[in-house]
Amino acid sequence: MAEKKKKSEPEYIFVEFNTPRKYRWSTGPYVGKMYHEARMNKKLYANQCPKCKKMLWEPQVVCGRCKVETGWKWKELPQRGTVMQYTFIVYPMWDPHYGEKFANPLPNAMIEMDDGTVIRHFLEETDEKKLKEGMRVEAVWKENEEDRGEGTADIKFFRTIDK
């Protein structure tokens, strides 16, 4: 495709390619277990490192920190936590997986759940002035089971709670 000439600038040609590439990404058994509990029971499950006893979010075959195999020990996580860090996108960005722009604004936070596990997720609160570190939040799930099955995305967002 040719781009129209500006004054005194030579004409330049561009070649465009716009075909989306398709993928079949697997959760594997570890993330799969988390998906299943979220979809069926609206519960957050993670596996536990046998050495440091921390819950692995994302669930994995090896604990990155301890560099040991985790085995298959699962625990349910609490669904309430505290915002450690947050931000919100002001500039709308392109989502390569959906081929459209993200919602805007989109508050995004690292939330320390009540057992110490840290989860990254979106916040319901979009008013910049009401966001602060230390605010208490809880998970809000997608209502219909058929809408769930996308792991952490089965949680719509975290909403502000009093305590």
């Binding site: 040609i13 070649v15 997986h97 081929g99």
Partner: peptide, 19 residues
């Protein structure tokens, strides 16, 4: 074990200068 397979895409348009 339950395993989920996501059938999705990566869609980022590209435009190359021929120079």
């Amino acid at each position: 074990k339950e395993i989920y397979v996501y059938e999705g895409q990566i869609y980022i348009p590209n435009k190359y200068a021929a120079g």
